[in-house]
C-alpha cells in the first residue's frame, strides 16, 4: 500500500542547522495492517509519516502509494491525500467551519462527492469516533477538548482513506476518552479494513492495538516485527529511550524469579492466560 524506498529527509540542508530527521528508511505498510510506530522524541516519526502522504518531499529516496510514485508529475497529489488520511499531532487547530458537520464534510467536499455521499460519510465518521450526532449542528469551537479531537479525527475518516495515519491521537486526553478513541479506531480498522498507522508514546496503547510494531531510533528503523517479538527485546528498547508495557516488565520480573513465562507478554489478558496455565501445570502450588 505505502512503500518507502531509501527515504532520507534533512532539515535545512546545507545550512548551519542541518539535521537529518529520517535516515535511509525502507518500510512497507500493507493493506489491512494496524502498525504501531514508536520512537523517542526526535526519532523522526512525525517526519516519516508526513512523507507517507506527500506533505513533505524526501531529500532523497522514493515513496510509492498504491504503486504510484509521489512527487512525480503524473501522480495527482490530491488523490494521494484522499488515499492516505493523516491526522496530525494536537489537530484541534484545523477546525474552522461554522458547524461540526461542515468541518467533517470539508475533506469529502474537496473530493467533489455528491451531497448524499458526503452526508453518509460524515455520519459514518461520526459514529466511527463516537461523536454524538446532535453535536453536528454545533460550532466546533463550543466542543470540549475530547469532542474536538474526535471531530478532527472524524474529518479525516470521512474521506474514507485506504490508510489512516494518526500522530499521537490521544495525547492530552483523559484516560477514558483515550481508551474509547483507540477502541473505536481498532474497531473501524477491523470492520472497514482500513490500514492504520498509529504513532504513540504509550507502550500500553501500542501493545493493545498493533499487529506490527515499527521502532524508530535516530531517524532509522531500529526494529520491525510482531508485538511479542518487539517487547521481548526490553534492553534494546530501553537503549532507545523507550520502555515496555507495565505488564511486560512485571512478567519479566516473574521470569527472573524463575517462573517460566514466555518472553514478550504485552497484554494483560495474555499475562492472565499464561499465569493461569502455569498455575494449572504446577498443580496449584504456585
Amino acid at each position: 500500500m505505502i512503500k518507502l524506498e531509501n527515504v532520507t529527509y534533512t532539515y535545512s540542508e546545507g545550512g548551519p542547522f542541518e539535521m537529518t530527521a529520517v535516515d535511509n528508511v525502507n518500510l512497507t505498510i500493507n493493506k489491512d495492517e494496524l502498525v504501531g510506530l514508536i520512537g523517542h522524541t526526535g526519532s523522526g516519526k512525525s517526519t516519516l509519516i508526513q512523507m507517507m502522504n506527500g506533505l513533505i518531499k524526501p531529500t532523497s529516496g522514493r515513496v510509492f502509494v498504491d504503486g504510484k510514485e509521489l512527487h512525480n508529475k503524473k501522480t495527482k497529489m490530491s488523490d494521494i491525500r484522499f488515499k492516505v488520511g493523516l491526522v496530525m499531532q494536537y489537530p484541534e487547530y484545523q477546525l474552522f467551519e461554522e458547524t461540526v458537520y461542515k468541518d467533517i464534510a470539508f475533506g469529502p467536499a474537496n473530493m467533489d462527492l455528491p451531497d448524499f455521499e458526503i452526508k453518509r460519510r460524515v455520519e459514518f465518521a461520526c459514529d466511527a469516533v463516537g461523536l454524538k450526532r446532535e453535536l453536528l449542528e454545533k460550532s466546533p469551537f463550543d466542543l470540549s477538548g475530547g469532542q474536538k479531537r474526535r471531530a478532527t479525527i472524524a474529518g479525516v475518516i470521512a474521506m474514507q482513506p485506504e490508510v489512516l495515519i494518526l500522530d499521537e491521537p490521544t495525547a492530552g486526553l483523559d484516560p477514558s476518552g483515550r481508551d474509547e478513541i483507540l477502541y473505536r479506531i481498532r474497531d473501524m480498522h477491523r470492520r472497514a479494513g482500513m490500514a492504520v498507522v498509529l504513532v504513540s508514546h504509550s507502550m500500553e496503547d501500542i501493545a493493545n492495538m498493533a499487529d506490527r510494531i515499527v521502532v524508530m531510533n535516530k531517524g532509522k528503523v531500529a526494529l520491525d516485527g510482531k508485538p511479542a517479538e518487539i517487547f521481548g527485546r526490553r534492553e534494546e528498547l530501553e537503549s532507545f529511550g523507550l520502555s515496555v508495557p507495565q505488564v511486560t516488565s512485571i512478567t519479566h520480573k516473574l521470569r527472573e524469579k524463575g517462573y517460566e513465562l514466555p518472553k514478550g507478554i504485552h497484554t494483560v489478558s495474555e499475562a492472565v492466560y499464561e499465569i493461569m496455565k502455569l498455575k494449572k501445570g504446577a498443580g496449584d502450588n504456585v
Binding site: 508526513q50 502522504n53 506533505l55 490530491s78 491525500r81 484522499f82 488520511g85 493523516l86 491526522v87 496530525m88 489537530p91 487547530y93 484545523q94 470539508f106 475533506g107 474537496n110 473530493m111 474529518g155 479525516v156 474521506m159
Partner: peptide, 16 residues
C-alpha cells in the same frame, strides 16, 4: 510555525 502546521493539516484534508 503555526501557519506551516495548519497548511499541512488542511492540505492533508485535500485543500488545493
Amino acid at each position: 510555525d503555526e501557519t506551516d502546521k495548519i497548511i499541512k493539516a488542511q492540505t492533508a484534508r485535500g485543500t488545493d
